[in-house]
Design a protein around this nucleic acid. Structure first.
Length: 926
RNA sequence: GGGCGAAUAGCUCAGCUGGUUAGAGCACUCGGCUUACAUCCGAGAGGUCACAGGUUCGAUCCCUGUUUCGCCCACCA
């Protein structure tokens, strides 16, 4: 084995092998039944970033763990077609060749996107494999697959049948760059510094009303000015008053509505129903006309008169200038407002009146609420429940049509004769009346296939809706569409509902809530019971990780340098429940170093010792005949387990170190399993790290090196036993290195199918075990004390010292472990007895009932020693003092539980004992 | 405007239902290439647990308020 662990040698090879062997197909005969997770499908355009690395590491830990526990574990991978994002990518690519999608035409363009998908779309799933994700790749799905497309269509038709899909003429969020409508969730609001312009609107019969606006360009579409009915300032104007819209001569109305805030601006507001959500509602309420002055591309249209053709922001400048020229601008204030931006391209959203398809969400939201209130779905951390419910309780209808080409076509058909007539009528009308489009009336047919004729006029010319569906309209079916729905497949019956969803907080609305609604609506069951919401990845300093900030930490580069296991371990170690993760490069060292530590510990155990000169190898390799599998052992049920003999804690020949490490192994097994049960990934990592590094390597291996000289066979058995089981505990978090080492131990097949260890803490309380643990603790603490003394007095590492231990009981413990104490403390001569007196010039230390002395005549530095003792005493005194205070307080004695009081008394006694010994030392130093 | 999260060592963070001496990694200091590992070993230093009240025998932890930072939601024209 190489001196340093080299992950790149191992990982790619194993990832390929795992897949080719089909290890991650669910074992349908697994004893514990199904366990399933569907991956949050990354965008096909995506490349692996830290968010994916986190998300998939956590999922993989769960899946590998459950698989080892004997579940029929299925992790369904796949990708999302990401309508707008993907279309944008391909459009940009075409732009390099100076081609627009319009030049290409729809069919050719969609073909191009598919080509792009075939060529680059597998990037991210390849990267997921590299991360070690144990997905069942034969189950991989894409949201535009034939099956999933069928599911989408079925879904649309069913919802339509249930009256939950409708076409309506509403004000929607419009991205002038992407040239499509967006749902409310696809708009991100950002605070933008702007201005509040106060514009004078002349009243027809004399006087003027000053209105305040942040968007002067929309005044061209104004149809009214509104004030609060109680506003004294405007009482003089009658209801049927009219005003003259400045710049373009047009009469507009004067209305009074209690929704107007008298405090804001002048208390008078211009009303632009075609370009403002609030005004749209007012328009509806008062039957106002909606005049659209901005076109889908963000330019002013012919309704804008002299401003037609100008970009909306250029128009704003010109309007302001013109108003100023006409002295119609009263004043300008600085003003901050939250402005909607397209979540894909960051362009400022334009509220735009247009006909779109919507899903009626209220009835579905009720199902979503029911999921947590009745069906037992829970969020981890729990606080997200409130966020989820608040959204559902205030839900608005979901705009699902997109004016792009890449996506699922809407199964709706328009009569070429009726529909244009209808829309023209609609656009000329006012906002009173219903805004839901009566399909029969408008010449629209919702159906999977093209209808032969228009049911209204009998026209034969029916064309399919040009629009496609929102990407999330396919993702919300993901937990069941990937299992074959709407067909009643075996997969669906077995693996739905899934077990847990692991995702980020940013898509609770987009995705999680909608999946719950769809799952409940179509399958009558919640799609998953637990929703684990992990944090968002950031970089140190709190900024978002983004290309434009140039602060990306690329997981692939980290994998390159630290190994996938190193990356995974580091990430899991940082992922404390639901908290955001702040990353920096050096945080990944922990995982890399840990893997190397594990590698080298294994090397010590598995590699034959190099000093062949001293006769037989100190450590036989795995070929040794000493380690034959014991038949029928519960530990060894899994086929192919390396030859490891179970070590029973009550075996008589075990040393205190053996018993201690074996007990720690049981403890860590219990803690790791418990941590996983509670989705505490960071604790899992910490427990394993602490156990492997501090307990196993720092103490047990050092002890074992010596033990091997005396009792090779047994020590080997313990070493191999602990290592093999530790590898299994580590496997979910570090799959590659554990597989590699497990095989080096002689494991056949794959560790990913080995059995998850079960903790046995039953022996922990036995007298023998408890005593051994206490005794090993004493050994550790006296070795620690000696090392401390050595360091304090700068005893050169190679120079050995004498050690005297004064102890009334258990002398033989120290004699039995003389070799260990001597080796780890660099001791030349050890004396143990009940009546030992410190030789002059000794440094002393006290721990419990043990006193130890290190003769350092000549080396000892009296002031330093005095300082060391005083410091020790000070800390003991502080502690004793606070305990005394507590114990002298009668209320503490009365109210605190008896065991707490007893404990305090006990520990005070101990402190005082130690304190007096230190005091004695100090005296002797004089 | 509403809600959520965070504030603990120089840095980044743990600390699960209140109970000896508040932990880790990195950085730092001292000493070591000790035959698994310098991606290492040994020993240290470093904290008024943001602030102010309260509950309690006892508060980093529970309650109230304040400050700072971050995020989410909202029809702030």
């Amino acid at each position: 084995m190489s001196e340093a662990y080299n992950p790149s040698d191992v990982e790619a090879r194993l990832a390929a092998e795992w897949e080719s062997q089909g290890h991650f197909k669910p074992d349908l005969n697994a004893p514990q039944g199904p366990f399933s997770i569907v991956i949050p499908p990354p965008n096909v355009t995506g490349i692996l970033h830290m968010g994916h690395a986190l998300n998939n590491t956590l999922q993989d830990i769960l899946v590998r763990w459950k698989r080892m526990q004997g579940y029929s574990a299925l992790w369904v991978p796949g990708t999302d077609h990401a309508g707008i994002a993907t279309q944008n990518v391909v459009e940009r690519q075409l732009a390099k060749e100076k081609i627009t999608r319009h030049q290409l035409g729809r069919e050719k363009f969609v073909e191009k996107v598919w080509e792009w998908k075939e060529q680059y779309g597998s990037t991210i799933v390849r990267q997921l494999r590299r991360l070690g994700s144990s997905c069942d790749w034969s189950h991989e799905r894409f949201t535009m697959d034939e099956g999933l497309s069928k599911a989408v269509q079925h879904c649309f038709l069913e919802l339509h049948k249930a009256g939950l899909v409708y076409r309506g003429y509403y004000l929607v969020n419009w991205c002038p760059r992407c040239q499509t409508a967006l749902s409310d969730e696809e708009v991100t609001h950002e605070e933008v510094k702007g201005h509040l312009w106060y514009i004078k609107y002349p009243v027809t019969l004399g006087g003027e009303i000053v209105v305040a606006t942040t968007r002067p360009e929309t005044m061209l579409g104004d149809v009214a000015v509104a004030v609060h009915p109680d506003d004294e300032r405007y009482k003089k104007y009658k209801k049927n008053q009219e005003l003259d819209l400045p710049l373009i001569a047009r009469r507009i109305k004067f209305i009074q509505d209690p929704a107007i805030d008298m405090e804001f601006g002048t208390g008078a507001v211009k009303v632009t129903p075609a370009h403002d959500p609030v005004d749209f509602l007012l328009g509806q309420k008062y039957g106002l006309e909606a005049i659209r002055v901005i076109d889908p591309d963000g330019r002013m249209n012919e309704q804008a008169g002299p401003y037609a053709g100008l970009d909306r922001f250029k128009c704003r400048e010109k309007i302001v200038a013109d108003l100023e020229a006409h002295r119609l601008l009263d004043k300008v204030e600085n003003h901050k407002a939250s402005v909607g931006h397209c979540y894909r391209c960051k362009t400022i959203i334009e509220p735009m009146l247009s006909p779109q398809w919507f899903v009626r969400m209220k009835p579905l939201a009720a199902l979503g609420i029911e999921a947590v209130e009745k069906d037992g779905m829970r969020f981890v951390p729990e606080r997200w429940t409130k966020v989820y419910l608040d959204w559902l309780n205030n839900i608005r209808d979901w705009c699902i049509s997109r004016q792009i080409w890449w996506g699922h076509r809407i199964p709706a058909w328009y009569c070429k004769r009726c529909y244009p007539e209808y829309t023209q009528r609609q656009q000329r009308g006012t906002l009173s009346g219903t805004l839901v489009i009566d399909e029969g009336h408008a010449g629209i047919v919702v159906s999977a296939q093209a209808p032969s004729s228009c049911p209204r006029c009998g026209g034969k010319d029916m064309v399919q809706d040009e629009d496609v569906l929102d990407t999330w309209f396919s993702s919300w079916l993901w937990p069941f569409s990937t299992l074959g729905w709407p067909e009643q497949t075996k997969d669906l019956a077995t693996f739905y509902p899934t077990s847990v969803l692991v995702t980020g907080q940013d898509i609770i609305f987009f995705w999680v809530a909608r999946m719950v609604m769809a799952g409940k609506f179509f399958l009558k069951k919640i799609p998953f019971k637990d929703v684990y919401i992990h944090g968002i990845i950031r970089v140190e300093g709190g900024k978002k990780m983004s290309k434009s900030l140039g602060n990306i930490i690329d997981p692939l580069e980290i994998i390159e340098r630290m190994g996938a296991d190193g990356l995974r371990f580091s990430i899991a170690h940082m992922a404390s429940e639901g908290q955001d993760l702040y990353l920096s490069e050096n945080k990944f060292l922990i995982g890399r170093n840990f893997a190397n530590k594990l590698w080298n510990a294994s090397r010590l155990i598995l590699d034959p010792a190099p000093d062949a000169a001293s006769g037989a190898p100190a450590v036989p390799g795995q070929s040794s005949t000493l380690h034959k599998t014991k038949e029928g052992s519960a530990e060894l049920r899994a086929a192919g387990t390396p030859s490891v003999s179970p070590v029973a804690l009550d075996s008589p020949s075990l040393t205190v170190a053996d018993i201690w490490i074996l007990t720690r192994l049981e403890e860590v097994t219990a803690s790791v399993t418990e941590s996983l049960n509670e989705y505490r990934f960071n604790e899992m990592a910490r427990h394993l790290y602490q156990f492997v590094w501090n307990d196993f390597c720092d103490w047990y291996l050092e002890t074992a090196k010596l033990q091997r000289e005396d009792n090779l066979e047994q020590t080997e058995r313990v070493l191999r036993y602990v290592l093999e089981r530790t590898l299994r505990l580590l496997h979910p978090i570090m799959p590659f290195i554990t597989e590699e080492l497990w095989r080096k131990m002689g494991g056949q097949g794959t560790i990913s199918k080995a059995i998850w260890p079960e903790a046995d803490l039953s022996k922990k309380g036995s007298v023998k075990v408890a005593q051994a643990i206490g005794e090993f603790g004493s050994l550790k603490s006296i070795i620690g004390a000696v090392r401390n003394i050595r360091a304090t007095f700068r005893v050169p590492a190679k120079e050995k010292v004498k050690l005297l231990i004064r102890v009334k009981f258990a002398e033989d413990l120290f004699l039995r472990n003389e070799k260990l104490i001597k080796r780890l403390g660099q001791i030349s001569e050890l004396t143990v007895g009940p009546d030992i007196l410190p030789p002059p010039g000794s440094a002393a230390a006290y721990s419990g009932s043990v006193s130890l002395f290190v003769p350092l005549a000549g080396l000892i530095d009296i002031p330093a020693e005095r300082q060391r003792i005083q410091k020790e005493m000070e800390s003991l005194q502080t502690r004793a003092q606070s305990k005394k205070g507590r114990l002298n307080d009668p209320t503490f004695r009365n109210k605190a539980p008896a065991d707490v009081v007893a404990e305090e008394e006990e520990s005070l006694k101990e402190l005082e004992g130690e304190l007096s010994k230190w005091a004695e030392s100090l005296k002797q130093l004089q």
